[in-house]
């Protein structure tokens, strides 16, 4: 059958920071082609296409719909594959190769994780399921 693309609206202006990204103006309506766990979604708008941050988009049809999966307070084991230094107070600073537990996989790509009973946000793009080869 035909591919039905989901339509989203930009809730804020976004200035792209690399050539594969697409800039957004508040109110822009885009078709989402691919949703990545990293929080980058590949979108097209008229003749433009590129990656945009998922958190800058809301569903056009059902803006109140919560799409994020439920938190898993038991935690899912992951390993950091790149170091990250927290920029905001609610983020965690971790080195590469640290074992952590993922509690909440948010669609914006910033997951709630736990390390030694401390919780905070961490970029999912720097995480990999424990026990897998890089």
């Amino acid at each position: 059958g035909p591919i039905i693309l989901q339509t989203y609206r930009a809730i804020a202006d976004y200035a792209k920071s690399s050539s594969t990204e697409m800039a957004l103006a508040t109110g822009d309506v885009v078709d989402v082609v691919e949703k990545g766990e990293s929080g980058w979604w590949f979108c097209q708008m008229k003749t433009k296409r590129g990656w945009v941050p998922a958190s800058y988009l809301e569903p056009l049809d059902s803006p109140d719909e919560a799409e994020d999966p439920e938190p898993n307070y038991a935690g899912e084991p992951y390993v950091t594959i790149k170091a990250y230094t927290a920029l905001l107070e609610d983020e965690l600073t971790l080195q590469e190769g640290e074992n952590i537990e993922v509690i909440h996989k948010l669609l914006d790509g910033w997951w709630v994780i736990r390390k030694d009973d401390v919780t905070g946000y961490f970029p999912s793009i720097y995480l990999q399921k424990a026990g897998q080869d890089i």
């Binding site: 809730i11 594969t20 990204e21 990293s38 800058y56 793009i125």
Partner: peptide, 22 residues
């Protein structure tokens, strides 16, 4: 073809998204 996504983390949600009641 779809290009590779950026290798850096996306920005944190904009203020507009945080204002929404949860």
């Amino acid at each position: 073809t779809i290009k590779q996504p950026p290798s850096n983390p996306p920005p944190r949600p904009p203020v507009e998204a945080r204002k929404k009641p949860s």
